Simulated assay, not measured.
Amino acid sequence: MSLPDLPPLRDVVNRHGLLASKALGQNFLFDEQLLARIAAIPGKLKGANVLEVGPGPGGLTRALLRAGANVTAIEMDKRCLPALAELAEAFPGQLRVIEGDATKIDPATLFDGPWHVIANLPYNVGTMLFTGWLSGQDWPPQWLSLTLMFQLEVAERIVAASASDAYGRLAILSQWRAAPRIAMKVHRSAFTPPPKVMSAVVHVTPATMPEGVSARMLERVTEAAFGQRRKMLRQSLKGVPGALAALETLGIDPSRRAETLDVADFVAIARTLS
């Protein structure tokens, strides 16, 4: 089946008067080769369900549709809806557009089966959405993979190793039962308008969840430990009942600081407290 011949994305943006909104954290990508590379990161998408958040004028959406995905796109910017409607007409039955706030929509209500999340996330809500998809006790999740554009600084925090400056709660949340990697870096000049910082695409797949660990307890321990990052564990964890005894049980020196413990150490503490 031949793919529809679409007008250049810049022409679509100009025709609909779609200037990127700073308030909505929008930065548009027009390079269709780059967008195709992003869409290819999760692997073959033909017939797969894909959730896209903040499609804007539909640059990445085009690449996903051309890859054969069945896309559900959540967009809160009414200005972008006519351009997305044109895409839906060009790819009959492949694109469903939902007007709304993705932070208030449960993806599980949108799909009958598993889905991928692929998105150039709005910078102002990207981390909130990401941590929401990684949280909760139920595991494995219903999503198959996350392929998400972040500021490079955030991407580095997601994949950071212990004892590095970027290591913290986000790294532990991302790594304790999932496998994140930086799939590609994207120069600021690729965006319109160019953001002030570099960006990167992070790809995350679910891994095995350690047994006997409460996700909420892990979140509580890491929140306390990194909430007072420069303090020793004996100080930062003293407000978590049983935490200091858990350190002793596990042979972890309470004079250490949070960033010196690796993900497995925090999992062990949470398991002891669970």
Rank of each mutant, 00 (worst) to 15 (best):
L3Q: 14
L3N: 07
D5R: 13
L6H: 01
R10L: 01
V13A: 14
H16W: 10
L19C: 07
S21E: 09
K22W: 13
A23K: 15
L24T: 12
G25S: 13
F28K: 03
L29K: 03
F30E: 01
Q33E: 15
L34I: 04
A36C: 08
A40I: 09
G43H: 00
K44H: 14
K44Q: 14
L45T: 00
K46M: 11
G47S: 10
V50E: 02
V50D: 09
L51N: 01
V53D: 12
V53E: 04
G56D: 07
P57M: 08
G58K: 00
G59Y: 12
G59F: 13
G59A: 06
L60T: 07
L64Y: 05
L64N: 11
L65E: 07
N70D: 12
N70E: 15
N70H: 15
M76Q: 15
M76S: 14
D77V: 09
K78R: 15
R79E: 04
P82G: 08
L84D: 05
A85M: 08
E86F: 00
A88D: 11
F91T: 02
Q94H: 11
A102R: 11
T103L: 15
K104Y: 07
K104V: 05
A108M: 01
F111Y: 11
F111W: 09
D112C: 08
P114K: 12
V117H: 01
I118R: 01
I118G: 03
A119M: 00
A119P: 02
L121W: 14
P122W: 13
Y123D: 14
V125S: 14
G126Y: 14
G126C: 14
G126A: 15
L129E: 04
L129A: 03
L129W: 02
F130C: 05
F130G: 12
F130I: 09
G132C: 04
W133N: 03
S135M: 15
G136N: 08
Q137D: 13
D138V: 12
P140M: 07
P141Y: 09
S145V: 07
S145E: 04
L146R: 06
T147M: 08
E153F: 08
V154M: 15
A155I: 06
I158E: 00
I158K: 06
S164P: 09
R169F: 09
L173K: 13
P180G: 13
H187N: 11
H187P: 10
H187E: 11
S189W: 10
S189C: 09
P193V: 09
P194A: 15
P194V: 12
P194M: 12
K196W: 12
V202D: 10
H203F: 06
V204G: 06
P206H: 03
T208C: 02
A215G: 14
R216P: 06
R216W: 07
M217C: 00
M217I: 05
R220S: 12
R220M: 10
T222Q: 08
A224M: 01
A225F: 08
F226A: 03
F226G: 03
Q228M: 04
R230H: 01
R230V: 07
K231R: 06
M232S: 10
Q235I: 10
S236C: 05
L237R: 02
L237Q: 00
L237D: 02
V240H: 08
L244V: 04
A245L: 12
L247C: 07
E248Y: 00
E248C: 02
T249D: 07
L250Y: 08
L250R: 06
I252M: 03
A258E: 06
V263P: 02
D265Y: 02
I269P: 09
A270I: 07
R271D: 03
S274P: 01
